[in-house]
């Protein structure tokens, strides 16, 4: 576990906060009155690391030149959230089983503006999930039980449903996290297979076009719309 600057591990600080019924660093009265943990979107020091430059080797990409920045507790929270977003499904692995956690660590550690924005949002979101779990159960998100975890996720996973204004930040966080986790999962070889993408293979001769099955499906759909192919 990564130690914090104050010498107390993040998980330990949540335990204490939870046991005392306190939001970390906030006055008791404010926390007691709040229905959810506070949303702290801090402006972070920008990542100072090199990008891959404007002329990288495309055929043999070098290892990522920027260091990963997530701490062990942050990785645990991310991993727990990622597997809620993309759980195991029969033979298909959960997000954490195909490297999604590492892709997102690489993503938010990159020295580019979009990724830096996502870094602020995701770190605030991990922090919020941990505080919220601690508020409800005394332990950080990764250690909370399924019931607590899903209760928290349900509150922030549906951006179009009405919800309290104080969840606006956590909902924005979850929207971005969902997009990144789904993106990382469905760009992995397992995810590509699951989608049924059949391209990226060389074909000799003419492009064969839609399969008979695909054409039959198309014609049925067009008919239902009152449209025709010719």
């Amino acid at each position: 576990m990564t130690a914090r600057k104050d010498g107390i591990s993040r998980r330990e600080s949540f335990r204490r906060a939870g046991l005392l019924g306190l939001g970390t660093g906030l006055p008791f009265s404010f926390t007691a009155a709040a229905e959810t943990a506070p949303w702290n979107l801090a402006s972070l020091e920008p990542v100072q690391a090199p990008g891959y430059g404007t002329d990288p080797d495309l055929v043999h990409p070098s290892p990522i030149p920027w260091p990963r920045t997530l701490t062990d507790p942050e990785l645990e929270t991310l991993s727990a959230l990622a597997d809620i977003l993309i759980p195991e499904e029969g033979e298909r692995p959960a997000a954490s089983g195909v490297g999604v956690v590492d892709v997102i660590d690489e993503w938010i550690s990159a020295p580019y503006p979009t990724q830096q924005q996502h870094r602020s949002l995701l770190l605030a979101g991990f922090d919020w999930c941990d505080r919220e779990a601690a508020r409800q159960s005394g332990v950080p998100f990764a250690e909370a039980g399924d019931r607590i975890r899903l209760q928290i996720v349900d509150a922030i996973a549906y951006p179009d449903r009405p919800g309290p204004a104080e969840l606006e930040g956590p909902r924005r966080f979850f929207d971005v996290l969902r997009s990144l986790v789904a993106g990382a999962y469905y760009t992995s070889p397992e995810g590509v297979r699951e989608l049924g993408y059949q391209g990226n293979v060389p074909i000799t001769g003419d492009y064969p076009g839609p399969s008979d099955e695909a054409m039959a499906h198309l014609k049925a759909r067009l008919e239902a719309l009152g449209l025709t192919l010719d």
């Binding site: 990144l180 993106g183 469905y186 590509v192 391209g199």
Partner: peptide, 10 residues
């Protein structure tokens, strides 16, 4: 059905 990219879950 293009090669999936990071935007697929957006």
């Amino acid at each position: 059905f293009g090669a999936p990219g990071m935007g697929i879950g957006a």
